[in-house]
């Protein structure tokens, strides 16, 4: 075998290896989704979504948990979106490049790697106890906001970095102030990237369980929250709770709830992709 053939063989081998690695994750996901669908799809009907939780599996619905998840999602968005984007804009546009900003930067990346349960403990101490919010939706949303802030900040910075310098130059040269340039040019041009990052971060928040358990989200809440200070549960906790029960009916319920939760995250990711494509087209 000469060296050209050898190289070609290596090339082919690596290609096959690469395909295998790619398929590994995908195949598992397909098996998982298929399994869940078989178990749960038959359980999903309108009643399953609008019913309150019950001791009887066949009467149980996800209404309170779904509403809790939606409340959490909305409140977390309202808190994390403005704070995260503003912090990202500050770090990228205003902060001087010195040692302090370097330390800040490293630690924001570090924060993104902190296990979520730690955020839960932080939320428990600061929001639930010190601020006296109790095991409320607000305390949960604040905790999750902390969790996803680093992701939003990093996404915002990356998106801003991708805006060509020439646009900035053009705006400044016309007499625009820094804020005018950010508001009129940089944010619109980086909006797609920022939104994508925010939505992906939120879809992570929707699936979070551990920090909310620590904060005190309950598995059994008889009513959907009606204001930010109400107690709440969320879908992942409901799923966790059902799975840990022995009766087969609850396993079915869990599978059905997983389908709903997956649907929510897939839709959110889909929206993120849509925004990204739309914005990219506009910039071209």
């Amino acid at each position: 075998m000469n060296s050209i053939q050898k190289n070609r063989l290596k090339d082919q081998l690596f290609k096959i290896w690469g395909i295998a690695c790619t398929l590994f994750g995908l195949v598992l996901l397909v098996i998982f989704i298929g399994d869940i669908l078989i178990d749960g799809i038959g359980r999903i009907d309108w009643g399953f979504i609008t019913d309150l939780p019950s001791r009887k599996a066949e009467k149980s619905g996800i209404f309170t948990a779904l509403m809790g998840s939606i409340w959490i999602l909305l409140l977390t968005t309202a808190i994390a979106f403005p704070v995260g984007v503003a912090a990202g804009v500050y770090l990228e546009e205003y902060s001087k490049k010195n040692r302090l900003s370097a330390i800040l930067e490293i630690n924001i990346s570090n924060l993104a790697g902190v296990p979520s349960i730690i955020y839960g403990l932080l939320g428990l101490e600061v929001f639930v106890r010190i601020m006296g919010l109790g095991a409320s939706v607000l305390a949960g949303a604040l905790t999750l906001s902390l969790l996803i802030l680093p992701i939003i900040i990093v996404a915002t910075r990356e998106a801003i970095k991708a805006v060509p310098k020439s646009i900035r130059d053009a705006s400044y040269a016309l007499g625009a102030s820094k804020w005018q340039t950010i508001w009129n040019q940089i944010l619109p041009a980086s909006g797609g990237g920022i939104l994508t990052g925010v939505i992906l971060a939120l879809s992570r928040a929707v699936g979070e369980t551990a920090p909310l358990i620590v904060v005190g989200a309950l598995a059994y809440v008889p009513f959907a929250p009606s204001n930010p200070m109400d107690e709440f549960s969320v879908l992942p906790i409901q799923i966790f709770n059902w799975i840990s029960r022995p009766q087969h009916g609850f396993i079915e319920n869990a599978a059905a709830a997983i389908i709903i939760l997956l649907l929510i995250t897939f839709v959110m990711n889909g929206i993120a992709v849509y925004f990204r494509n739309k914005w990219q087209k506009r910039l071209k």
């Binding site: 020439s166 646009i167 130059d169 053009a170 705006s171 040269a173 040019q185 619109p188 910039l283």
Partner: peptide, 8 residues
């Protein structure tokens, strides 16, 4: 500027 840089 050197390269045309219209706003998007």
């Amino acid at each position: 500027f050197q390269k045309p840089n219209p706003f998007p």
